[in-house]
Design a protein around this nucleic acid. Sequence first.
DNA 1: CCGATAGTTGATCAAATTAGTCGGGAACCG
DNA 2: CGGTTCCCGACTAATTTGATCAACTATCGG
Lengths: 159, 159
Amino acid sequence: MRLTTKGRFAVTAMVDVAMHATQSPVPLTEISTRQGISLSYLEQLFSKLRRGALVKSARGPGGGYRLAKAMDAVTVADIIVAVDEPIDATQCGGKENCHEEQKCLTHDLWVRLNEQIFEFLRSVTLAQLVEQQRAKETRVVELHDPRLSKRPQSESVAA
Amino acid sequence: MRLTTKGRFAVTAMVDVAMHATQSPVPLTEISTRQGISLSYLEQLFSKLRRGALVKSARGPGGGYRLAKAMDAVTVADIIVAVDEPIDATQCGGKENCHEEQKCLTHDLWVRLNEQIFEFLRSVTLAQLVEQQRAKETRVVELHDPRLSKRPQSESVAA
DNA sequence: CCGATAGTTGATCAAATTAGTCGGGAACCG
DNA sequence: CGGTTCCCGACTAATTTGATCAACTATCGG
C-alpha cells in the first residue's frame, strides 16, 4: 500500500468516469482536459485499471471507458492497489529471514499498520467520493440560485 | 501526505527508540543493527525527526536519541510529516488557477480524502504501536504458556 | 469499404525521489 | 586526550513518476 500522486490521479480519474460515464463511455481525452492529466499518462493508468477489472473499455467513435462495477462496489483501496503495485517495506519481504526476535519488529509492526490504513481506504467507496463532489458542486450552484438547494442526489448506476 | 517506505522506516525507528530509550538514549548504530536500516539513512531521517521536535539527541559516549515527548503524544502522522515533506497532488497547488467548474474536482476531492487519511494516521499514537508490539512479543511467550492467552488486544483505532 | 475515432501496447525519456554512501566535523564523556 | 556519537553536506545509483511517441487494432458512421 503506497500512497503517491499516481494513486491520486487514478482516484481522480475514476471519479471523473463515475460522474460522466452514466450515458455513454468517457474517452480519455475528455478526462485529460477536464482533470489536467496528460493523455499518455492516463493511458498507462487505465491500462492497469482495466487489468484490475475496475473499468470496461469501448473502442471506436463514441467509445471510451466506463465503470466495470457499481460505484459503491469500488473502493479507494481497489484503485490504488490497481495502479500502485504493492511495495514491501520489510527487509524480509514475506520471506523467513527475520527469525531473530527483534528483526521482526519492522515486519509485523508495519504489516499491522498497513492493514489498518488499508482497511480505512477500503471503507471509502467511489460512490461516496462522487456524492461528496456533487454536494460540493451543488453548493456552488446555490450561490447563484438558492432554490436548487434540495438535492440529495445519490443515485446508483447500473452494474 | 505521502506514504512510502521512507515514512515506514521512520515509524519503525521511532518505535524502536520508544521501546529502548527508557533508561538511556539509543544510538543509531543500535537501531541500524536491530531494524536493518542503513546507518547513514537513519542519520538523515533522525536529522528531520530532530528538526521536527520528535526526538532529542545526546552526543558523546552513552549518547543517542530519545523521545522529545511522551509516547502517547506522538502520532504516526507526526512522524510521516516530519520526514516526508508534504506534496501537493493538485495542479493548482493551493493557487487559484482552478476556477473552471470542473478543474477543481482534482483539488477539492483529494484535499478531502487526504484529510481523512491524515485524520486516521493522527489517531494512531506511538504508544499504541509500542503496546501492540509488546503484546505481540508476549503472544510468542503464550505459545509456551497457554494460560496467558486472554488479551483483547486494544483495537478501535478507527477515526 | 473507408476513414476517422479511440483504445492498446510498448519503447523511450527527463526529472524527481529514494535509499544509501562517504567523509569530515563538532560535541561530549570518561 | 580519544573514542563515541551526533551532525552536516555532497554525492550517487536505482527506482519511480509523469510524460511523449509510434505503431497497432477495433469500431462506428457514412
